[in-house]
Design a protein around this nucleic acid. Structure first.
Lengths: 136, 136
DNA sequence: ATCGAACTACACTTAAAAGGTATACTTTAA
DNA sequence: TTAAAGTATACCTTTTAAGTGTAGTTCGAT
């Protein structure tokens, strides 16, 4: 069914929430959790992935929280997907040919076609950023 | 990670195999299984889904097997994906809003954006057919 | 200094889906 | 009438998804 997972869906919404704040504002997890209806502990678990990717930053301790680390215009849907799920791959074979039961046969037209479709998908994901969403 | 599943991958290859035969030729499961390196019992399990969609036909009994029920030009990647996995949906919310923790709020820009991306993906999948692959 | 608010790390649990296998049955050409 | 071949259904095992628990660490405020 080809879907993004729940964690990514939550991440999109958390990033959009932060993108809507005045630049640099620090918001604590509970506030985001309530506003975006994301289970608190789950949010706390996925934020580090966004941090590692450089999308958000965090401040620990009292009055701590999260803030956007980049300009919303520079954060694409692809960035968030990759932060949470790793590289997009329509088919395992496209990343690791050892998964292919035809063993990465270069003549596999199915996989070559999927590779082309995947490229279009990646381009499309990279074509939407959070600045665009904030302005809507 | 957004991928199609193994069953769909096998289905692509089975359909391509049949598309490469002279039109209407009946090929039994074991032959397809061996040629395309697809576990026999698994292939037998997924073929009925292709039949229900009208992509392939079957003949039971001795000398039975499967054959392509349509012109390869008329069978798209989307057809096969939908036969095996059902409708493409990047996010559960896009099919069933009750899954959305924000409960299908029409103002959910994330989901609206994903809907647009999904549409592009569907178009792309529908843009590749098996006649094209056979000619390559 | 220290207390508590807030993030971090990591392990655990539960449920669902993926992937595959087994058994029994039906159809049909020879 | 029999063996070859697809069909139906149910089962099993492994992996992934989604979420929770526990024990930290950091740091602002007092």
């Amino acid at each position: 069914m080809m879907n993004i997972n729940q964690a990514t869906d939550y991440a999109f919404r958390a990033v959009l929430y932060l993108a809507r704040q005045t630049r640099g504002r620090v918001v604590d997890a509970q506030t985001i959790s309530k506003a975006e209806v994301i289970p608190m502990r789950f949010l706390l678990k996925i934020m580090p992935s966004l941090i590692k990717k450089g999308i958000v930053g965090s401040q620990r301790g009292a009055k701590g929280g999260y803030f956007l680390a980049e300009d919303p215009e520079d954060i694409t849907f692809l960035d968030v997907v990759e932060a949470i799920e790793g590289p997009v791959k329509l088919n395992r074979c496209l990343i690791d040919p050892s998964y292919c039961s035809k063993d990465g046969a270069p003549e596999c037209l199915v996989h070559r076609t999927l590779a082309g479709i995947q490229e279009k998908l990646v381009t499309e994901l990279a074509g939407h950023n959070f600045g665009e969403l904030v302005r809507k």
